[in-house]
Simulated assay, not measured.
Amino acid sequence: MIAAWCGGLTVLALAAALRPRPAARSVVPRSRDAPPGRQPGHGWWPRRRRDVDAAEVATWCEGLARVVRGGSTLIAALRSVEPPASCRSVVDDIVLALDRGARLTDALTVSSTSPHLNLAITVARACAVNGGPPAEPLDRAAATLRSRAADAAERRTQSAQARLSAVVMTVLPIAMLTLLLATSAPTRAAAVSGPGLAAIAIGGALNIAGWRWMRRIVAQVES
């Protein structure tokens, strides 16, 4: 009975250690009336933090280009086109600066934690500085962002087997220990001894370290 309790507590401790934590939110303040963005996913293999998705920014750039091509100015397009929820706070800052009388070039001098949103803002700022029709540069920026999104999706697909292998290699020792504690009296007797508890503790620490190491390697490949 004592061995079973020790095995159960070990499994719970490992499960708590392996439980993914939500990704940190962006430090850019969000407007009070803005709808919340997408929540970070939960599961065995959480994605790396992505404040802004490339495909969402591409859709926003296409919307800006469509409005501008219809005869509106870039300022009117920024005010009328709905931005993605994940980058609404940055776009709201731009629109607020325009409402306060700032020039377009000054309003577009904002910082973002996302390289995708920075690309769109840089293209819009270049159009405001150099003049000319901004529809074509925005369409090209959208095409570049679509390509980035496709590349990221392909990397996630290619790394799916590695993620599955990491999950199996992490869960299998825990499952085997639980099964042996439940069915084998010698294993339960060894587990409550000093060397047995030390072996379980060392094995659990190595299991957690291996899980985090594999997750970090695959996350670098997906980035």
Rank of each mutant, 00 (worst) to 15 (best):
R48F: 04
L74Q: 11
L108E: 04
A153D: 02
V95F: 08
D99T: 05
V90W: 10
G7L: 11
V67H: 04
R100Y: 02
V52D: 02
P137C: 06
R215M: 11
G204T: 11
R125H: 11
G70V: 07
L164V: 14
Q158K: 15
V28G: 06
W60T: 09
L119C: 05
I217R: 11
C6Q: 10
G210V: 11
A150L: 14
V123G: 01
I217G: 03
Q161E: 13
A124V: 12
L164C: 11
G7S: 12
G8I: 02
L14V: 10
A191I: 08
L9I: 08
D139L: 10
A162R: 03
P29M: 07
L206I: 09
A201H: 08
L172K: 04
A85E: 07
A152C: 06
N130D: 15
A219F: 05
A162Y: 02
A141D: 02
D33N: 01
L138A: 08
V57Y: 00
A190S: 13
I200L: 14
L197N: 04
I208P: 07
A107G: 00
W45F: 14
P35C: 02
D106K: 10
R146N: 13
L119P: 08
A205W: 03
R38M: 00
Q220I: 14
D99P: 03
C61P: 10
G37V: 03
L138D: 10
T73W: 05
P35V: 08
S111M: 01
M176N: 10
L172R: 12
R140P: 11
R146P: 02
A153H: 05
P46D: 06
T178C: 07
L145Q: 10
A209V: 15
E82Q: 12
H116D: 13
M169A: 08
A149L: 00
T170L: 07
A152P: 01
I121H: 10
A198R: 08
A141K: 09
L9N: 02
S26T: 12
T59Q: 03
R66Q: 11
A124T: 15
A124C: 12
L9Y: 05
V123R: 12
Q220V: 05
